[in-house]
Amino acid sequence: MLPAYRSAPGHPIHANRSVYPMHTRLTLFSIVVIVAALAALVPTLQLPGSADVSTFIGPQLWPLILLIALLAFSSWLLLDSRKRTHQTCATTDEAPSAASHSLSLAANRHWLMMAMTIAYTVLMQMIGFLLATVIFAVAISWLLGARHWGLIIATAVIAVVLIQGVFVFLLGIPLP
């Protein structure tokens, strides 16, 4: 069955926290897909066709079919989203955007977390797995709301012991 993309008990989903309405997001998404599909057409058309290879069908046909399908589906989505946007604009006034909220630390915590994860991945290769993991565990715990030092240190210790224990000692897999 479908994976559970749901709010955990007591945790509200923030799917619509963004200041942009759904139709705008869908319009943006469909434009991105159309642009990406058009860009992918360039290398696709350079692939050998059926006449250029020994097999009956060349490596170009299948990706070409998929790109045409992607263009068709995303154009359909674009038209439908535009139609719905016009309907919504005709019936309702847009709510003022929550600009001040979007600049706060709480609203950008996920991007900060991703930046820290990228930094961790780079750091791991420079200073080694163990030290980078301790720094990362402390920083992310703090970012996610932990303020009690006992809890932060416990998270770092659990992370190191769990990963070393499972990957290195139990499964014999080398760490980055």
Binding site: T121, I140, I158, F167, L175
Partner: peptide, 20 residues
């Protein structure tokens, strides 16, 4: 169990697991 404990552990498992 607070998410500030689970979150970092999940991310690290993802990185090490994918690398491995």
């Amino acid at each position: 169990v607070p998410y500030s404990v689970l979150g970092p552990i999940i991310i690290m498992c993802c990185i090490v697991g994918t690398y491995s």
